Simulated assay, not measured.
Amino acid sequence: MKYLLVLLVIVIAIGIWRSRRRVERAQRPAAPRAAPLQPPQDMVACARCGLHLPRSEALVLEAPQPRYYCCAQHRAQGPA
């Protein structure tokens, strides 16, 4: 009978502990969601050094055909 009483107290203590954990989880603010990934961008090579970079970051020299450069210095020097 004594062991049954001890077991009952342990089960009640575990039940109280688990219910408090549930309440704490419910009150915890949700983790911020990650920003949605951007779609892949087209990559272009610098006409001077061959460095690949996204088209949105490249400097463009509109000639008969567009040429892409990684920096203003390479654009001023022209293609290799």
Score class of each variant (00 low, 15 high):
Y3V: 15
Y3I: 15
L4G: 14
L8I: 08
V9L: 15
I10H: 08
V11C: 12
V11Y: 03
I12Y: 05
I12G: 10
I12P: 01
I14V: 14
G15R: 01
I16F: 06
I16V: 09
W17S: 12
W17T: 12
W17C: 06
R20I: 00
R21K: 15
R22Y: 05
R22E: 10
R22I: 02
V23R: 03
A26F: 05
A26N: 06
R28W: 11
P29Q: 06
A30F: 08
A30G: 01
A31T: 10
A31C: 03
P32Y: 03
R33W: 09
A34M: 03
A35Q: 12
P36L: 10
P36F: 04
L37T: 08
Q38W: 00
Q38D: 00
P39K: 14
P40C: 00
P40L: 03
Q41F: 00
Q41D: 05
M43R: 13
V44G: 06
V44D: 02
C46G: 01
A47Y: 04
A47P: 12
R48Y: 15
C49F: 11
C49W: 13
L51S: 05
L53W: 03
L53H: 08
L53I: 12
P54Q: 11
S56Y: 10
S56Q: 10
A58S: 14
L59M: 12
V60Y: 02
L61P: 03
P64D: 14
P66I: 03
Y68L: 04
Y69Q: 02
Y69T: 01
Y69S: 01
C71R: 11
A72L: 13
H74K: 04
H74Q: 05
R75Y: 09
Q77D: 15
P79A: 15
